[in-house]
Amino acid sequence: MNDDFLTRFRKTPRAEFEAALYRRISKPMTASTTLYPRRRLALAFAAVLLVLALALAASPGARAMAAGFLRQIGILTLSERPAGEPVLIAPASPEQLALAEATATPIVPASLSGAPLEVAVAQAGFPPYLPGYLPAGFTQVELVAAEYVDDSGIGHGMGIFATYLSPTDGYLAIQTTGFDERAQDVPMGGRTITDVVVNGQPGVWIEALPFASSLVSSQAINMLLWSENGYVLAVQADQLSLAEVLKIAESLSQ
């Protein structure tokens, strides 16, 4: 018996297991404020709302500060909270909890058939917004759908992510996301935010978001974010100007 003998018993995981586990874990997750018991959370939430309402009503300065510091993009509230995870402001409803329980499924093999767009549309239940215009050199490298689930494993939206790369290490991603009605508080942490109008809708241009990916070397990225036809849309890029990103956004169609 030697090292070779002891290592010869390694074996490759079953392909079905590998695919099924990947399918199960490859879901983006959003931090949730869902706590138990929910009644306690509801009471705490109501108390916070009451204090906030009283503070805003009593202080013109506070009203001005709140107005200056917040942006609303669809169900997303962009706040100036300095750090920390975005949170779902409301917990899952009893109906959502019941549905999640009723539809909980065991691991099943991932379906690998079909073109990426077909698979993504089938998984998300809606078609993505895709660009009619792309800056020179950018080509699509990935098109995937993923479900957003909270800490309790309850889904609260589906997104389709189209990623493009350029020969100059440029990164471009377009996200079409359909969230449920649960509002989200998204901390901006001091990022520079510029108000813009995208396809007639109010939006924001957020600069220098920390970024890390094996696809490109960029450490920061800019994002155009707006809501349109019930979807939250985002265009992210590391080397493109706001004008160029706006041009891409205006060319999007489903």
Partner: peptide, 26 residues
């Protein structure tokens, strides 16, 4: 790194995690 928007972060790291998953699973 903590990115400001979770679903933004999720998309950015999707490819990374897929690569790591297949490398580390065995």
């Amino acid at each position: 790194k903590s990115l400001s928007i979770p679903w933004f972060r999720a998309a950015a790291t999707e490819a990374d995690f897929a690569e790591l998953y297949h490398a580390e699973l065995p």
